[in-house]
């Protein structure tokens, strides 16, 4: 409905006109539950990256991305500058080691997961979200999926930069480098998936327990640190002479993704790990990993069941 009323009913040809644009019904496409879930996932990614928000909200994610990518650029640059010299064989770090920037990721998770979860609870947005064609499980999957996507991207992108850069500057030729390192094509995505999956589920689950961002962030860091301290007090120093390994290493949730990474790249637990020397240590680590992820998801599904119990 559109009407135009001019002065004295003179219509739009008069000096001025007041337009009542009224209301236009919508008769276009109307997606269902999957469209709503996808929309929440996209909105969560935008929120985590600070898109459509002030520059302050953009700082943390893009500083982290810089921190993650710069070592790869420096590595490739050094390779390029030292080509045709003996120094060209020096490796600053391996692909496996490069996935281990978990402390930086942990800080990022502690900043981002609360931002994804806490305002919805604190500002009481949840009833509005669940008045849409969404189930509680959709909410959980969208939030964990958004966190996972960002963590995966921020961990995987530097690896791609490193790989492509090395390919371009290697003396043996790009194709030869790619063929020699073909196993990275599955190792890197798998290890990064394990890392991102772990931090996203646990981070989101811990953040869901409170409506205060600062409390949630501190809880995430505290939770991981406490497991590390408990584990350290059980196992002692793994680098001491005569250390034979201890299942207490399984309690260390900061290192658990790194153990999975080592299983992917090395096929066994690394010698410097707290689990080194434990019979079936790798299998135990995998079991604990799956248990932690499953428990975090179960807690989230329970907490975000949208129906009153």
């Amino acid at each position: 409905m559109t009407t135009a009323v001019g002065p004295g009913g003179g219509g739009i040809g008069g000096v001025g006109a007041i337009y009542d644009r009224g209301y236009r019904p919508y008769d276009g496409e109307h997606g269902g539950r999957s469209a709503a879930r996808l929309a929440l996932y996209r909105a969560s990614i935008r929120r985590a990256l600070g898109l459509r928000r002030s520059w302050r909200q953009k700082t943390a994610p893009f500083v982290l991305l810089g921190i993650a990518v710069i070592p790869a650029i420096v590595n490739v640059g050094a390779k390029y500058l030292t080509r045709d010299t003996v120094a060209s064989d020096i490796e600053f770090f391996t692909y496996r080691e490069y996935i281990g920037v978990s402390n930086a990721l942990l800080v990022f998770v502690a900043l981002t997961a609360p931002d994804l979860m806490c305002p919805d609870r604190r500002q009481r947005v949840l009833p509005l979200l669940f008045s849409r064609p969404l189930r509680g499980s959709d909410y959980v999957l969208a939030k964990v999926g958004a966190m996972f996507t960002i963590l995966f991207t921020f961990s995987f992108l530097p690896q791609v930069v490193l790989f492509v850069g090395q390919m371009l500057v290697t003396e043996d030729g790009s194709l030869t480098y790619a063929q020699d390192n073909a196993e990275l094509v599955w190792q890197v995505p798998l290890a990064v998936t394990a890392l991102a999956g772990f931090y996203s589920t646990v981070g989101i689950a811990v953040a869901s327990l409170t409506g205060r961002r600062i409390t949630a962030g501190a809880s995430i860091i505290g939770f991981f640190l406490v497991t590390s301290i408990i584990s350290g007090s059980i196992t002692g120093d793994p680098e001491r002479k005569g250390y034979e390994g201890s299942l207490g290493g399984l309690v260390n949730l900061i290192d658990l993704p790194a153990v999975l990474r080592d299983l992917v790249f090395l096929g066994h637990v690394d010698e410097e790990s707290q689990l080194s020397g434990v019979a079936g240590g790798g299998a135990w680590a995998l079991v604990v990993y799956l248990l932690v992820v499953a428990t975090a998801m179960a807690a989230l599904f329970y907490r975000y069941d949208e129906v009153d119990r």
């Binding site: 276009g28 496409e29 997606g31 709503a36 929440l40 459509r52 002030s54 009481r124 947005v125 509005l128």
Partner: peptide, 29 residues
């Protein structure tokens, strides 16, 4: 459509962003 009694909108987003996001959450492209 549901309009709760209490405050329920994200405070750090613009009205246009919030309303269009809720439109997408209702299944609109």
């Amino acid at each position: 459509g549901y309009m709760p009694e209490h405050d329920c909108l994200p405070l750090d987003q613009t009205a246009a962003d919030v309303v269009s996001t809720f439109g997408e959450l209702s299944g609109l492209p």
